[in-house]
């Protein structure tokens, strides 16, 4: 571990030096040993192949993430990765927007960092949080030159409400726009509903995970299979799925 920051209350961003992880595709994840019996899947917030550093921004929610948040600088972490299927690169000729809720924002920032220079139209980032202090990476998105829309549940910053309102307006102006989303399940369900679950709407999912490599079949979500609903592994077929692949229960 080479750097540590607290970007918001209860949230920690750790930088690790690992050229292998720094070469990850945004949307892929690291499977990190903590104190518990299961690793913790955490997505990348920054990927820098020049320095060989990768960063992970996570919320402290339980014993595992608390242990990880308390690691000292210079600590050696046991990380399996990069794992899973990341975001596909958008078609730079068509508009795209990023929709992030809470701790779903960081992997979208890793993607934005790699894609923005090629975009022909200014990309839009719609960032949602419960309250002002929990809006993650806003300044970083502005520095990339994105149009940034903020929503908070309590209206303490930006628009009061969820990311779905601004997304609906963006989709009305950009009906063929590409959407990349990450956040709580309820948010992703709503993103799928208003975008028509198209094949160029991409969502990064979370699920309780075991092995992380496709062996245990724990981290499944319901997919839209050729012969009816089927289960797909977030660690292997995901964590990024297209809207048309998914069924939200």
């Amino acid at each position: 571990m080479v750097k540590r920051q607290v970007p918001a209350p209860g949230h920690v961003e750790l930088w690790v030096h690992s050229p292998v992880l720094a070469g990850a595709t945004p949307g892929q994840f690291a499977h990190v040993v903590t104190q518990g019996t299961l690793r913790r899947p955490i997505s990348f917030s920054r990927l820098d192949v020049d320095t060989g550093n990768a960063a992970m921004l996570f919320q402290v929610v339980g014993v595992g993430t608390r242990w990880l948040a308390n690691q000292e600088m210079g600590a050696v972490l046991d990380i399996l990765g990069p794992l899973g299927r990341g975001f596909p690169v958008p078609d730079a000729r068509r508009p795209w927007c990023l929709v992030g809720g809470g701790v779903g924002i960081p992997p979208l920032f890793a993607a934005a960092s790699q894609w923005t220079s090629a975009a022909r139209m200014t990309p839009t980032a719609i960032l949602g949080a419960r309250t002002e202090s929990l809006v993650l990476l806003e300044e970083e998105f502005r520095q990339l030159g994105h149009v940034v829309w903020i929503t908070t549940d309590d209206g303490s910053r930006g628009m009061k409400g969820t990311v779905i309102g601004p997304l609906a307006r963006w989709l009305a102006k950009n009906p063929q726009g590409q959407v990349y989303a990450c956040g709580p399940t309820a948010m992703l369900r709503a993103v799928g509903a208003i975008s028509g679950q198209r094949d160029d709407v991409w969502m990064a999912l979370e699920q309780r995970m075991g092995c992380g490599v496709g062996a245990c079949l724990a981290c499944v979500v319901l997919g839209n299979g050729p012969e009816g609903p089927d289960y797909r592994r977030v660690c292997t077929e995901g964590p990024v799925f297209s809207g048309e692949e998914l069924i939200f229960p």
């Binding site: 518990g36 019996t37 299961l38 595992g64 699920q207 309780r208 995970m209 075991g210 245990c216 079949l217 724990a218 981290c219 499944v220 979500v221 289960y231 229960p249």
Partner: peptide, 14 residues
Amino acid sequence: GNPPPRVWETPMGI
């Protein structure tokens, strides 16, 4: 298989 969640960490086990 069964509906998710399918795995849960417990003290010294899963």
